[in-house]
Design a protein around this nucleic acid. Structure first.
Lengths: 150, 150
DNA sequence: TTATATGCAAAAGCTTTGCATGGGT
DNA sequence: ACCCATGCAAAGCTTTTGCATATAA
């Protein structure tokens, strides 16, 4: 867990939430703090709710509402999975990653790639669009493009 | 509509479906033919069902089943939208595109970019993964990265 | 003839919403 | 005090599944 990232996001989140005239209730506070700690990789509403249960706060409704609020404020990235479940992770302007899924294990690994980012920016330019967000999902299996295979 | 693409896909689809020991019923035939014609851009199960209604075939259940079959056989790409709806489009090995969404209008435009593809292939190499599929979604607004804004 | 495809209706699963209550500011 | 946040339960939606029937091979 990246503590710098956590603190930076937490501060920005609280700023922006307050700035939007929203109030800090128990559920929202718990969700935000959980995300700051454990939301650096993808988390579903269900997972958030489950991890909050021990604390005795965070109904499904509140979790969904808070997650959506944070997303709308640009504080979270959102990915809609093949399984019909939305997953969120904290959005940090200075740090940016994408995901690669192992088709065998289902494991999701984050990665960053400068060349990929440049290519994407160039596409936006070429198409005459100012990009507000983008997402890349790679799927594959272990092992390079040799002929071996599984 | 690209007739070459349509015919190539149709042929490959029928081959692969037959090869999998599946039978050609009325619903599947209708779905496959519709996709060959109009499935070059994203289409939801609902949209497929609606367009098949005049023909009097294609219940929701059958459409979902056929769509999933085709996807599992690698004949369709699948994208899970923000709205919780899955959309499909025909997969052509020789042609490959991604999508850019206009945040104002919701309009989805397909695009291709060689440099982007190369960057993605390089990432797979670097991470030691043989890529089986990948998707890129860009979101933005009209106008280049000037300071104007929307 | 025999296994598969189809359609209807019911069920399942994620997410949203209505409403009364509790809690920030 | 005022208004927002919360939680429960019900509703909404897309997608899946069970089952009887029709149909391809």
């Amino acid at each position: 867990m990246d503590a710098t990232l956590r603190d930076r996001w937490l501060e920005r989140a609280e700023q922006r939430l307050a700035g939007a005239g929203l109030r800090a209730g128990a559920a929202r506070t718990a969700v935000v703090e959980l995300l700051a700690r454990e939301g650096q990789c993808l988390l579903s509403a269900q997972e958030v709710t489950d991890r909050l249960r021990p604390e005795g706060v965070g109904s499904a409704a509140s979790v969904y509402r808070v997650l959506d609020e944070l997303f709308e404020l640009g504080l979270l990235h959102r990915l809609d999975g093949r399984d019909g479940i939305a997953r969120y992770e904290i959005a940090d302007p200075e740090r940016h990653h994408h995901h690669i899924v192992d088709e065998h294990t289902g494991e999701v690994r984050p990665f960053t790639d400068e060349r990929l980012e440049e290519a994407i920016a160039a596409v936006g330019e070429r198409l005459g669009m100012r990009l507000t967000s983008h997402e890349v999902i790679l799927r594959g299996v272990r092992g390079r493009s040799t002929t071996s295979d599984d």
